[in-house]
Amino acid sequence: MTNMNEAVAPAQSAPIATPPALKLKADSLRRLGPVVALGLAIALVPLIAGSAYHMHMAVMIGIHAVIAISLNLLVGYAGQISLGHAGFMAIGAYGTAILSARYGWPPLLGLGVSSIAAGLLAFAVGRPILRLKGYYLAMATLGLGMIIYLVISNEVWLTGGPDGMSLSVLTVFGIELDSAGKWYWIVGAILLLTYWMARNLVDAPIGRALRALEGPDALAASAGIDISWNKVRIFAVSAALTALMGGVGALYSGFITPKSADFMQSIELILMVILGGMGSVFGAVVGAGIVTMLPQVLTSLEHYESLVYGVILILVMVFMPKGLVPTTAHLIRKFRR
């Protein structure tokens, strides 16, 4: 069983001495502060971005950040490793593509339906799978992801197979969403909303219940928490959100291949969570940014790319085993004292 008790809770509880009214205010401020900061950052990026390529990267980071947050709920708070989230991403992407391109559904309806379908699938397999512990769970989710990947690669008549399939440009209220600049605001809004919801969830009773889930099950159970129900619920929500972003990504890029469903993609997603910091909502956003940008930054190294990428992973984990954000926050707190 993996030991994730060290995962840092993002919010420390306020000092006991504070009067209740003030505490409440401070609480909501603390909760809203980061959300406002992220909102400002999102609003600022287009001003700094120099080209359409930068906006493209920003959209990709946004998409990955939402997935990383949803995966972090599962990994960081509920202590459940999933190596199959790329599979859910692909359900969203291919579901949207197939329903709209092959069956003539409105793309947004297709997007909604496939996200819900991914959630339902996760719900259905969740109960038996989530009883597994640690690496066994990792294996089971990996298997689930691989099966989804193989179906997509093999059913050429439906998915276009390894050559991929195209989606037409999405039009909403007469506006053609054909550029990164336009998609940026949509993805930015979803990210902000997810971020806000995740922060609230972490502080709400269900969040506390979730954190209890990463400890020994017996303990959580004795505290009256319905373990499997909570785990399954968070797994389903996480899968649905991931599928939603998979679908958004597909509509944005207009072309999808099974590659986006494969094992390495799942690894990248989990990497975002661990590098950024397990159990830190902001960490998930930072992790998504780094993992998305790193290959682009390193591509100028040509043949040294994989070597340098590997060294970076090792160094971060050796010096910041809790992830970038929790470690940095810890250092800042220490510095202030």
Partner: peptide, 9 residues
Amino acid sequence: VITLGAALV
């Protein structure tokens, strides 16, 4: 993650 990095190295 470190072993993953080592694999890349």
